[in-house]
Design a protein around this nucleic acid. Structure first.
Lengths: 185, 185
DNA sequence: GACAAGAACGAACGATCGTGCTATGAATGG
DNA sequence: CCATTCATAGCACGATCGTTCGTTCTTGTC
């Protein structure tokens, strides 16, 4: 149920996931589905949390299994590319949701912010282990690196989703290489 | 009228700009406003084109007035930051619209793609004059540079809009500096 | 001053939105 | 075996959506 919600939300946005259409897609009645959540907002919240769990499982956790340092950074990056390309039919749900909710207030936006902050901190932590490992210079700003990495992924999303540019992944990888080159001792 | 449409679209998305609310905001009747466009889709199209004109006027054209080479790149970048921060109450309309329409078909998406492609080409052209000017190495890939620059701006949008990070502009400028450093002879 | 043209209007349409109510049926525990 | 719980269904509600229609008002032309 939440899987279907996340799938359609990645295509038409969280606001575009209406109770009626989601009920049809899951072969349920509007009221039957609605009873599970009690409000549209808590359906949106549950969808975001569900997508977050999948993101951690498919992107973060496998990356943390890679060897410390640069390989871990690259593993995170590749998993992330894969997530944005194939995990959901409309690409990364968080990109769409962030653009939708960045000018609102409420629990959905709060959850999105929390996710994004967590992600930034996770990246920064991985970068710092890369510094400790000697793969990256010790004057590298891990949070600045996290900013740059997120920018690359957002650019990839734009090029691959909106422009349907077949070179999108290539451009993203070259950008990561440049980022790493500039950070190496 | 289109000004107001662009303003509210930057906050609630193009799909969130409803005929009724826009009519209220412009002190017109629903039908009176509707008659100007004939359909919601052509209202969206007109809004995007209007925003594009403003973007060219506020970001592109002034940048092309700056000295060739690195100053022009920096002028474009600063105008763009300013645009994303102050031009519309909800930040860059194109970021929101791209996320909304990247999984659709139709004239609105086509227009957004055209805008984005044009922007990428404009950036690449500015970069190439920077190469010709000797400010940048002549083996710099201008389209790769354009990709990276758009990524930085998208990251800035995310950090400033969603995360409300006061360091967003600082991070973006540092990322641009790094990009330019790596491209200098 | 008569008249065509277009802008704006109020009212209404069918559809769909989120959200309540009430009923039913199947599972579950005493 | 009965009582209770819980997931689901049906139906209806007020609101709002995009859109249409016929009418009024403004404006410029002859």
């Amino acid at each position: 149920m939440l899987d279907q919600a996340a799938r359609t939300a990645s295509e038409v946005g969280l606001r575009g996931v209406t109770i009626g259409t989601l009920a049809d897609l899951t072969n349920m009645s509007k009221s039957g589905l609605f009873a599970h959540f009690g409000s549209k907002e808590s359906l949106q919240l549950a969808t975001v949390q569900h997508a977050r769990d999948k993101f951690v499982e498919l992107v973060i956790r496998p990356a943390l299994g890679a060897p410390r340092g640069e390989p871990r950074v690259r593993a995170l990056f590749e998993n992330w590319l894969e997530w944005d390309t194939h995990a959901l039919p409309g690409g990364c749900l968080f990109v769409a949701a962030a653009a939708e909710f960045d000018d609102e207030t409420g629990p959905v936006r709060d959850e999105l912010v929390r996710n994004q902050v967590d992600l930034g901190e996770t990246i920064a932590r991985i970068v710092r282990t890369g510094i400790a490992e000697g793969h990256l210079r010790d004057d590298v700003d891990s949070e600045q690196f996290a900013f740059a990495l997120q920018g690359i992924l957002l650019g990839f999303h734009q090029y691959s989703r909106l422009l349907a540019d077949p070179l999108a992944a290539h451009r993203a990888r070259r950008a990561l290489d440049a980022l790493l080159d500039a950070a190496r001792p």
